[in-house]
């Protein structure tokens, strides 16, 4: 068991055009309802910024030298991306894996299981990036983010999306039913959503919790994006990126190995 985990972590997936084909299949499905989706990508951050920023923010005052709205905006980018990615790579991927047998159909062709897994990760990450772009657009229109900071911020978000997509696929490969994802949300996503330095700075938490938070991908993403948006790039940014990168490599390898074991029996 331990050895399997180790070989899975270092399993290097085989890439080919197949992953892109799987992405395109998902995009075709997305196109059926593209306008509703795009509208929602814009409307949702507006609602969030209104409620949290203007509502809650007026009560809170300044945080770390900026208004609460400015403090919260980078967090909103990564949070909304995380939630979209996780939903896509769990519920949607699981449906394709089990009910619709979509992947079994892909595997009738010369596309292999590695490419199926990578295609799903790529697709979920893309949707997360789209969601973060919506937030960035709304934030820019409100003067909450400078235009030259948008692309570097989204690059960090993309890396984080890749990590969460892989984690989602790992959950999918171990799931027995849809309830499993509810547990995953409760024990994994929700704590991160609340305690990764999103709604308040990490510094207000007890030291032990702060240390634990440093093992969570979302924490590093929030820190990195916040650093970029603030305009004062600190050395810690590169550490955040390095952590996310290492997480991406291992979660991807593991996710692909798990899916391969699930698809080819």
């Amino acid at each position: 068991m331990g050895l399997t985990l180790l070989t899975d972590l270092f399993y290097v997936p085989k890439l080919g055009r197949g992953a892109w084909c799987v992405w395109q299949r998902n995009f075709l499905y997305f196109r059926y309802s593209i306008w509703v989706s795009l509208l929602w990508v814009i409307v949702e951050p507006i609602l969030y910024l209104l409620a949290i920023g203007y509502g809650l923010g007026t009560l809170v005052g300044d945080v770390q030298g900026v208004s609460y709205l400015e403090f919260f905006t980078p967090a909103l980018m990564v949070i909304s991306a995380m939630l979209v990615v996780f939903f896509e790579s769990t519920y949607s991927t699981y449906t394709k894996l089990t009910r619709q047998k979509t992947f079994d159909t892909v595997l009738l062709t010369s596309i292999g299981p590695d490419e199926v897994a990578l295609g799903e990760i790529l697709w979920a990450a893309s949707k997360g990036l789209l969601s973060a772009s919506g937030v960035a657009l709304v934030a820019w229109s409100q003067g909450l983010i400078r235009p030259e900071h948008i692309v570097p911020s989204l690059a960090v978000v993309a890396l984080m999306c890749w990590v969460f997509a892989s984690i989602g696929v790992i959950f999918t490969s171990t799931a027995r039913n849809y309830d499993w994802f509810l547990y995953a949300q409760t024990i994994f996503i929700m704590p991160m959503y609340l305690f990764a330095g999103t709604y308040f700075p990490l510094g207000v938490l007890p030291e032990l919790v702060q240390k634990i938070a440093l093992f969570l991908p979302l924490t590093h993403a929030v820190m990195a994006v916040r650093s970029i948006v603030s305009g004062e790039v600190q050395a810690s940014l590169f550490l955040n990126l390095a952590v996310l990168f290492v997480m991406a490599v291992f979660t991807t390898n593991y996710a692909v190995a798990r899916m391969r074991a699930k698809l080819v029996t």
Partner: peptide, 30 residues
């Protein structure tokens, strides 16, 4: 796999897509 065609027991059709799109998506796969 590039030289064989497979009709599995479970049809594995994409119910979200039209008949034509089912074939076009698969054509892209092959």
């Amino acid at each position: 796999k590039s030289k064989i065609g497979i009709v599995p027991q479970m049809d594995g059709l994409d119910h979200d897509f039209t008949v034509m799109d089912n074939l076009l998506v698969f054509a892209r796969f092959v």
